[in-house]
Design a binder for these strands. Structure first.
Lengths: 209, 209
DNA sequence: AGAGGCATTGGACAAAAGGGCAGGATGTGC
DNA sequence: GCACATCCTGCCCTTTTGTCCAATGCCTCT
């Protein structure tokens, strides 16, 4: 299977060539894909030097090409790993991973597996358990919220007060309340507690009974 | 790597032998492990005919032996998959999986990967995203709460108002407030929103930053 | 009996939260 | 231009939430 590395630095190409004799590199996802039009290919994305948004954007783009995507981070973190995998990546490792490890990862990914740092696997499993009973995805109708409302809702979902939200978004507390009223209305909840729970897909007392 | 199959039926051994020439089978986990005392081994558990509890118990036992564990289910389901993986299994597939697929799975698992049905991977990722920021398991110290406090906290965790809690527990709203103050203090949260989130093991804005 | 924890409540008060009404400022599409 | 949505804000009001100080009764342990 083709091994395509996408990086802006190009510093690490030697290591990669050591892992895969036929590895090729490119600056952008589109370039890499055009190097190997055949479908089964692995795209290795170098996340170093990219902020979270740009990184996720790149993962999404890479996944959309139909490739198996492995994200390589300079500072592997839980949040980044999950976000990447959620975008459709099937691997997450250190950007400085040894050639032998890269080959192992390639092997796993080529055969339909998922590869990530062992401790992250552990963590992922622990997380999923408590969500298991959820029968349906049952996401609230978040798409009915405007972008601003989503920001407010997101912060309430993490326990922020109106004052904190106002400061974070640099708007008045009154505006936060206005957004909240609208959110309550759209999502059919009555207060911030129920909103916080709904945002986390947790059923509410009144909705349960 | 040793391939050890644990099954009570023995009906499917032929298929397994077809996948792995050196496969061996046993009735119980302990027997299987004694067949191959060397550490790197894959234990394939046949879940058919076992109820959920027995099945999970077996997975746990198998994981405890230090083996890579793959659970094979006759009726693969989301909940079962997550529970199994949460117990430490690294694979989950159909018990009737084709020999070629079994070999792929073995390959993935041997190299530190995780293998499960593609649609389950998708689901798993979707779930994990919303829990991502959790920095620690951070179970609230619920044992420090008195029984009455626990009742109140439990209802707040499902979005109830003070008034509703008072009515449900047949006490005055004032008492509910008193309990809440005590709860906030003990759990180190500042208001009912953060309490609701904490009770559901969801990290809080202020604890993250 | 006395100490201490727990559950309960009251009154008073302060701080959030939430909503009604009214307005302004941007956009976008018809 | 006009309608419409979104975003932002003010004033003022009610409700809810949360805290402080104080008190009573019950129970257990010493």
């Amino acid at each position: 299977m083709e091994q395509l590395f996408v990086t802006s630095s190009g510093q690490l190409r030697q290591r990669w060539m050591q892992a895969f004799a036929d590895a090729r590199a490119a600056l952008r996802v589109a370039d890499a894909v055009s190097l190997a039009p055949r479908d089964p290919r692995i795209l290795w994305l170098d996340a170093s030097g990219l902020d979270r948004t740009a990184c996720l954007e790149r993962v999404r783009e890479a996944v959309a090409t139909g490739s198996r995507v492995v994200l390589m981070s300079a500072v592997p973190g839980e949040a980044e790993a999950f976000e990447a995998l959620n975008q459709g990546a099937v691997g997450y490792c250190h950007v400085e991973a040894a050639p032998s490890q890269l080959r192992e990862i390639a092997l796993v990914v080529e055969h339909g597996g998922l590869w990530m740092l062992p401790e992250l696997v552990q963590r992922l499993m622990g997380l999923s358990l408590r969500v298991v009973p959820t029968p349906a995805p049952a996401h609230p109708q978040l798409d009915t919220l405007t972008s601003r409302e989503l920001m407010v809702a997101g912060r309430v979902a993490r326990g922020a007060s109106n004052q904190e939200i106002a400061e974070a978004l640099d708007i008045s507390e009154r505006t936060v309340k206005a957004h909240l009223s609208s959110i309550f209305d759209k999502l059919g909840v009555r207060d911030r507690v129920q909103l916080a729970l709904a945002m986390n897909n947790i059923p509410t007392y009144t909705s349960v009974n």
